[in-house]
Amino acid sequence: MSEFAIRMKDLRKDFAVSHAGIASLKSLIVFWKKRNIVKLDVLKGVSIDVRKGECLAIIGKNGAGKSTLLSLLARIYKPTSGTMEVNGRVAPLLELGAGFHPDLTGIENVYFNGVILGLSREEIQRRLPSIVEFSELGDAVEAPVRTFSSGMMARLGFSIAVHVDADILIVDEVLAVGDQRFEKKCLQRVEEFRQNGGTILLVSHQLDTVEEFADRCIWLDQGVVRLEGNPADVISAYRAEG
């Protein structure tokens, strides 16, 4: 087994962006000549290694390519070039509850989301009491999700994600779910996960959280790694830039 959880080598990703949009055949035919599709280089050769059990934070301005990087990791996009090696099961915590269907009950959605994240139905059944307990929803899980508040939805989503036994947790600005007490509980859970040898990739604008949590920090700027190292150093350099 490799000592690395994630190895990225010279990862590049560009998108074709059309300002008009070609959502219909008509516009494709009529505007064929002036389609003006612009190529947008989001990642311009990023090489990052993440060791097992490490908590790596990625910071950077909006549009620096952080989310694209995480999406590549979650296999939502294929890289334009470069290689990526992932050892272990990845649980993306990106925007919790993305797969919830409003007309289904909380429980039905737990099954659906759990299976997408790679659990079997049996495993979910065994963990169901624990998932419901962690979310603190009580009997409300029997109601359709459309009746949930956004906080309740986020809590249920987080609860499912931390119950999938992943090796690598991707945390994208999601710890701000619900009230302070629940947030603390989430952080505690993430900390527990780390102590058990899990790898964490954290993307956040909350620099204090990053400084407290991360072992190592990477500053992504316009698609390249600008600075890499000790969280305190990187963050102070990032702050100095403004």
Partner: peptide
């Protein structure tokens, strides 16, 4: 669309 933008399957 919302789902496939978030997660792989």
């Amino acid at each position: 669309a919302a789902l496939i933008k978030k997660i792989y399957f």
